[in-house]
């Protein structure tokens, strides 16, 4: 597989600028606003579902015993909330076929 590298906010803003005609700074602000609204919902404990793309799903993990892989010492892993991404079937199919 050829390497196509990594896109960042700046690259996505560049695409918004080029394809939709918003200025670069406006494009960056809009992308930032999208991420901020998603973060805000997740912070409140809401899952975020974008049809055709996928769902960001929160999971509450109970405390469990972990191990320091270097020393082998057992340490408790505190209960925490984690974020998982479940890609839509559409996205899975697109990626599997490519």
């Amino acid at each position: 597989m050829r390497s196509v590298g990594t896109l960042t906010r700046a690259d996505l803003a560049e695409t918004v600028n080029r394809k939709l005609g918003f200025s670069r700074s406006e494009s960056l602000d809009l992308l930032e606003a999208i991420l901020e609204h998603m973060c805000e919902a997740l912070k409140k404990g809401e899952n975020v579902k974008i049809s055709g793309f996928g769902s960001f799903v929160l999971r509450d993990k109970k405390e469990r015993v972990g191990r320091n892989p270097k020393t082998g010492v057992e340490v408790p892993i505190t209960p925490r909330r984690v974020l998982t991404f479940r890609a839509s079937q559409l996205l899975k199919d697109r990626i599997a076929k490519s």
């Binding site: 196509v4 990594t6 896109l7 992308l31 973060c39 974020l83 990626i95």
Partner: peptide
């Protein structure tokens, strides 16, 4: 206009992944 931006945002991420690349959004994931 807002709809176009949101659709393009997710479409570009999907396209990059389909092409074998990554998308790094600092702070988000």
């Amino acid at each position: 206009e807002i709809e176009q931006v949101v659709d393009l945002f997710f479409e570009e991420i999907a396209r990059q992944l389909a092409e074998g690349g990554r998308v790094e959004l600092r702070g988000f994931g």
